[in-house]
């Protein structure tokens, strides 16, 4: 059983609209951003496939399989192209 950890999540652009909030604090057993996004997609109704997203951990872009640590600040970023 994996220990649960508290994370600070921020959604950008269309993900923010789908999630209904800009920021969110969650307690989760997710070990990676990919696992975290799967959880959030289910609870928050996020429709974009994880393969199309970027994630940043603590103000730095990271990969979806980067291990998460308690207190991490996680930003999910969809592709944006309006101009």
């Amino acid at each position: 059983m994996t220990a649960s950890r508290q994370l600070h999540i921020k959604f950008f652009a269309v993900l923010r609209e789908q999630a209904g909030v800009s920021t969110l604090a969650v307690t989760t057993s997710a070990r990676t951003p990919a696992e975290l996004y799967a959880e959030l997609a289910a609870t928050r109704g996020l429709t974009l496939p994880v393969a199309l997203l970027r994630v940043a951990i603590n103000d730095r872009y990271a990969t979806m399989d980067t291990p998460l640590s308690p207190g991490d600040r996680v930003v999910f970023i969809p592709p944006v192209a309006g101009g």
Binding site: V14, A51, P78, A81, G82
Partner: peptide, 21 residues
């Protein structure tokens, strides 16, 4: 490319413009 390479271009366009602008 570090940010978005490997992601299919058409899917990026669709995801980015999914709401009609």
């Amino acid at each position: 490319h570090c940010l978005w390479a490997g992601k299919p271009a058409l899917s990026l366009e669709t995801a980015a413009n999914c709401d009609g602008g």
